[in-house]
Design a protein around this nucleic acid. Sequence first.
DNA 1: CTTGTACCCTGACCGC
DNA 2: TGCGGTCAGGGTACAA
Length: 274
Amino acid sequence: MPELPEAETIARGLDAAIAGRRIERIKIHRDEVVEPMSPAAFRRGLRGRRVLSVGRRAKWIAALLDDGGRWVTQLRMTGRFTWAPPSPLRSEAHLSASFVIEDDGGVIRFYDTRRFGRMWVLDEDEWAELDARLGVEPLSERFTPRLLADLLSNSRAPVRNFLLDQKRIAGVGNIYAVEALFRARIDPRRPARCLDRNDVRRLHNAIRSVLSAAVDRRGTTFSDYRDVLGAGGGFQNALKVYDSEGEECLRCGGTIERCVLAGRSAYFCPDCQR
DNA sequence: CTTGTACCCTGACCGC
DNA sequence: TGCGGTCAGGGTACAA
């Protein structure tokens, strides 16, 4: 489900909700959500800790704790946080974990229909290790056309697959990869290392503009994604090709096609993406 | 090293 | 209305 813009929106919502507050009680409703940690170890690492701030790294949510540790969450496909004032729980369906915040701070809940999501408490070294495994943040200053060109030149994979590789560029998922390639007028099947200087310049621009526009619109609600208050995003109205097989290309009037790369759908206009 | 595939799960949707 | 097949914003282990 969530890519960089959705994770960013969720992180901001959690930060507004719990920054400066203490986590008083934790309930793990499904043990697998903290695997390979044990629920006891997870609760030990988090209970009584104050959350200094909540941020994002790639598609991960990371809350900095007052002992230097990090409460990190990988939302995967359907992971979702909610923040609510103290209130009776309406339904336990798909509830994986819940967190009672100090005093009247309310309750944070983590729901995950497909149960792929994971959350852990990491110490500083473990966090540094995770951070080092992930590639460059595409909205950071470090992500230059030059760096993109270097990364592309080392990959023979189709450029859509290249964009999904979190070791290289971290935070782009299938929707935004496909949308950026449409805006850059690049065929998603082309080998990454075959892009020329102009292709690289357009792709760099497209990645950044698509992601920042999606952050501004608070993400894309395709089916499950919601922010911590339950509101959907707005970027689904700005999508040009994702999930649009057979529809008319808004740029050239051609017909959008779907192809499968590394087991996942890519959408593109064969007439104006080369 | 790089790349692709299978798999983890549930639910929605489509054709019969 | 039911049933089987296919597909879904991700990441990881493992094979080639």
